[in-house]
Amino acid sequence: MITLIAGGSKCGKSALAEKILSQYSGRKLYIAAMQPFGEGADEIIARHRLMRSGKGFETLELCKSFTPEAFPTDCAAMLEDIANLTANEMFTGETVREPFEHVMRDIKTAAERTNELIIVSNSVGCDGIPYPKETADYIRSIGRINAALAALSDNVIECVFGIPLVLKGIIPC
């Protein structure tokens, strides 16, 4: 089963994803696509590590190279998050590349290898601020990826101020 959880900054999406992942009895994988650079990144990574401690998750920290082919099979996994995964695919090479196909291929591979996949994604298109072309392309890519992931997912949940809103399927916990 695939569950997509999306929302803005500090809306409780990670906490919900972790709650869903926690209830599976088998091997539990936390796949962090956080980029460990930029001001504030260390703080966020430290906070998320603390939130996960004691929950029995195995952490895979994927930065520049996301290789779902290397995932162990037969486990449940949560992937956090699509904005970073997209940025990694788009901006960390020598040239800017179109991320859609790469992200979707990775997610589909991850979904095939895992019994349960929980994807944490981001709402990034609603601040009404005009951005330079590269950032505007990034926002559009995430929007397009979110729509494709929602079509692929069994459950789609939007988090708003800690309240989960079911857009498709159920809240599987």
Partner: peptide, 22 residues
Amino acid sequence: EIGCGIIPIEKREREYREAAGR
């Protein structure tokens, strides 16, 4: 709802969004 955009580069702006979310 102010948290559904690109994460700002400015620390202060970022902290504002996070505080508003929490």
